[in-house]
């Protein structure tokens, strides 16, 4: 029984290709996820048309702004890593995590004050869409925390930015989803 331990190379492709391969894989993952989110969005209009129940508009606008803001901080973190500014990167990753948590808290608060129930069709749609999205936000926060912990130890640099780039791209993707979900849930009538 041979127990070889070795650091595992992600792929045997030529080295300059690694980043392109990883990036393509991530984008394909986004395409696939887009269909999931798109189907839920279609289900929303299929069942309800443009009708919606009354929601807390101020809260909706606030969490939307917070999520967009977190995209800006995430962008800053990625840019900083690409310019080897590790300190700024760590701080802005931290800001992104905080903003993400505030967003998730906002959704949870919205759930607690919603005047409709999941057994009504708009309630089903609302809780499912925000729930699936919030699951992605929470996952993103977890990944951001893992990356942040590594960034604090200075593991990333302009030579090795992929983990930061990937998690930031994922975060932007979650933001793009909300860009469509917010008007579909809060602004139609």
């Amino acid at each position: 029984m041979a127990l070889a331990t070795a650091h595992h190379e992600a792929a045997h492709a030529p080295a300059h290709n690694h980043l392109a391969i990883n990036r393509a894989g991530l984008w394909l993952f986004f395409f696939s996820e887009t269909i999931l989110f798109g189907l839920l969005l279609s289900a929303r209009f299929y069942l309800e048309g443009i009708h919606r129940e009354e929601l807390n508009q101020a809260l909706g606008l606030l969490i939307t702004v917070i999520l967009l803001l977190s995209s800006v901080t995430a962008y800053t973190a990625e840019t900083a890593i690409e310019h080897d500014n590790k300190k700024v990167a760590s701080w802005y990753l931290f800001f992104t995590i905080v903003l993400g948590l505030i967003f998730a808290g906002g959704v949870a608060y919205e759930w607690s004050i919603a005047h409709f129930h999941r057994s009504e069709s708009f309630g089903s749609i609302f809780f499912t869409m925000t729930g699936i999205h919030a699951t992605h936000v929470i996952t993103g926060v977890f990944m951001l925390i893992l990356v942040w912990a590594q960034a604090l130890r200075g593991r990333y640099s302009s030579k090795n930015p992929w983990a930061v780039s990937a998690v930031v791209m994922y975060w932007h993707f979650v933001d793009v989803v909300w860009v469509f979900y917010y008007p579909a849930l809060y602004l139609t009538k």
Binding site: I35, A43, S124, T128
Partner: peptide, 30 residues
């Protein structure tokens, strides 16, 4: 890659309906 999400989404909605949601219950708008 593109379409498999459909099956997953459909079965997810079934799971949710079993937990009291109302996507497919005609009497409450599904």
């Amino acid at each position: 890659l593109l379409y498999t999400q459909g099956f997953a989404a459909a079965l997810l909605l079934i799971l949710l309906d079993r937990l009291g949601f109302s996507f497919f219950e005609a009497s409450t708008g599904g």
